[in-house]
Amino acid sequence: MSFSFQQPPDELTWYHLGPLLDAEAGRLKYNPEQYTVHGVSNNAVACCWAGLLVDVDDGLVLTDLGRRMLAAWKAGPAGQRWIADQASPGEETSAPAPPSATELKSPPDRADQLGLFGVAS
């Protein structure tokens, strides 16, 4: 079953990319020892609420919307720069490690983060 609690983002940012890239690579598994509340990071839960990820037996996987948005990001300038930065001579770029927040874009300040959850600043 798939449902969302909030609108999908207009564009993917550092906040979404780590969990989406992990899900694409099959690395987004539940870890209740590290994430005691949800079993995954809060960013991954927010992606689920936005309809980008969906729950399966042992983790979260991309929804069709999540797959389309991630593909569009990879095809865009930011995604292409990131993919090129991850490439090393003699290595494939099909499954690079997920970007950190500093590699993509600085995190928003606290007031901007409240907008992620529909709270006016």
Rank of each mutant, 00 (worst) to 15 (best):
L65P: 02
I83C: 11
Q113M: 09
L17Y: 10
A101F: 06
W73A: 01
G79L: 15
Q7S: 14
F117H: 11
T63W: 03
I83L: 15
I83H: 08
E24W: 00
I83V: 15
P77T: 04
G66H: 06
D55F: 05
E33I: 09
Q86Y: 05
Q7T: 08
A120F: 00
E33N: 12
R67A: 11
P8A: 00
S106M: 09
A44W: 00
G66C: 11
H38V: 07
L104V: 14
S121A: 15
K105R: 10
A87T: 15
G66D: 05
D55T: 11
N43G: 10
S41Q: 04
V40M: 10
W73K: 00
A101K: 04
Q34I: 03
A78M: 11
F5N: 15
P96W: 01
D57S: 12
V45S: 03
D112G: 15
P19M: 11
L104T: 13
L12S: 05
L21H: 00
A50L: 01
R27N: 04
A97T: 08
N43A: 13
L65N: 01
V37S: 07
W73F: 05
K105Q: 13
V56S: 02
N43D: 13
W49F: 05
D10W: 00
P96F: 01
Q34P: 01
A78I: 13
T63I: 10
A72H: 08
S94N: 07
Q34A: 11
E33V: 12
E11W: 03
M69V: 12
Y35H: 13
D22T: 01
L70G: 04
Q86F: 06
T13R: 09
D58Y: 02
V56E: 07
D22H: 06
G115P: 00
P99G: 12
V54S: 08
S41H: 04
G18D: 15
D58F: 01
G51L: 02
P108R: 10
A71Y: 03
S94M: 03
M69H: 04
T93S: 15
A97C: 09
G51K: 00
Q113G: 03
G90W: 08
A95W: 05
A71E: 15
E11S: 13
L104N: 07
Q34G: 04
A87E: 14
W14A: 14
W14C: 08
Q86P: 01
E103H: 02
L60A: 01
S94Q: 09
S121H: 10
C47Q: 12
Q80E: 13
P108Q: 06
K29V: 09
G39R: 00
V119S: 05
A78G: 11
M69D: 02
L53T: 01
C48R: 06
L114P: 01
P89N: 03
E103M: 10
G118K: 06
G59P: 01
G118C: 08
D112H: 14
D109V: 09
L116E: 04
E92M: 10
P96S: 04
L28Y: 04
D22F: 02
T93E: 12
V61N: 03
Y35Q: 03
Q6A: 13
N43T: 08
Q113R: 07
A71C: 10
D22V: 00
D109S: 04
E33W: 09
G26W: 05
A75E: 09
P99D: 14
S41C: 06
P108A: 08
A72C: 06
T93K: 07
S4Y: 02
K105E: 12
D10T: 10
G66M: 09
R67V: 02
Y35A: 01
A95T: 12
